[in-house]
């Protein structure tokens, strides 16, 4: 099944990814791909290796081996900042708001290829003044879009957990990414805000970017994802539409195994 998925429609393709900590194998993925222009959910029980996979793909953690391409470019082993610059931008499970910077500064930071970020050009305001104004306008626009316009001058450290998730989303979009990777975007977000957030995620896709997100809430997964990938014990065990994956016996066993406190790997028979 996964072989079919890795046709030219994939924006991210990975092969033979493995990452172990000591004796514990956190990620061991034969093949993994994300279709261009889709919203893909990555699900799986706790400890399935979803976040580690995120970390490895985005250069935050080293892979023991494996290679992956983004937009047909081999980005295996690239450092995190280069991967982000290539257009693959992630958020974090526990949002990393830059606490002692204002909300707007958080946004402005995320703009790419800023001239004023060079040491010497920074000293001459003339060189980056116009660029800064453009970035600020874009930042304000995105803040309105995520609903944080009123907080633009507050310290990001004063935001609530849900607001931080929104800020992170806005900040990620500020980079003009082609693939946004959201690690549990709805965790800790209150239901009203969740609806708004999902709305935003949909429109990100509609504007042409691809979304990959880790999620636990199956209602959320069912409501917005085009495709679902399920991991357990470090491996991809199922892939397809939400309905298909939820019905997959291996997936059910994986979640049941979690409930029993141990991983009972399935045989072929499954419940209806």
């Amino acid at each position: 099944m996964s072989a079919d998925a890795t046709t030219n429609g994939a924006i991210l393709q990975a092969r033979g990814m493995r990452r172990a900590f000591g004796g514990l194998v956190a990620v061991d993925v034969e093949s993994f791909s994300v279709m261009r222009g889709s919203i893909t959910a990555l699900i799986g029980p706790n400890g399935a290796g979803k976040t580690t996979l995120f970390n490895v793909l985005t250069g935050f953690e080293r892979a023991d081996h494996g290679e992956w391409t983004f937009d047909d470019r081999d980005v295996s082993g690239w450092p995190a900042y280069r991967i982000a610059r290539a257009g693959m931008v992630r958020t974090f499970q526990i949002p990393k708001a830059l606490a002692r910077m204002s909300v707007l500064e958080n946004m402005k930071l995320a703009a790419q290829t800023q001239r004023g970020e060079g040491f010497f050009p920074a000293l001459l305001r003339r060189l980056w003044c116009d660029e800064e104004a453009r970035i600020e306008a874009r930042g304000v626009e995105l803040l309105e879009w995520v609903g944080l316009a009123k907080q633009r001058d507050d310290y990001a450290g004063t935001l609530s957990g849900g607001q931080r998730k929104l800020l992170e989303l806005g900040r990620a979009l500020m980079t003009n990414p082609r693939l946004v990777m959201l690690d549990e975007p709805t965790a800790g977000v209150n239901p009203a805000l969740t609806e708004q957030l999902l709305d935003r995620i949909r429109s990100v896709r509609d504007e042409g970017a691809t979304v990959l997100f880790v999620e636990h809430d199956m209602d959320v997964v069912g409501s917005i994802s085009d495709r679902v990938i399920c991991m357990a014990q470090g491996s991809v065990i199922a892939e397809g539409t939400a309905a298909e994956v939820v019905a997959d016996p291996q997936v059910i066993d994986a979640y049941l195994g979690e409930r029993h406190g141990e991983a009972a790997m399935p045989t072929s028979e499954g419940p209806t």
Binding site: A80, A84, R85, F92, L109
Partner: peptide
Amino acid sequence: DAARSLGKN
């Protein structure tokens, strides 16, 4: 980490 995730070296 946040800085790196936004493309800063």
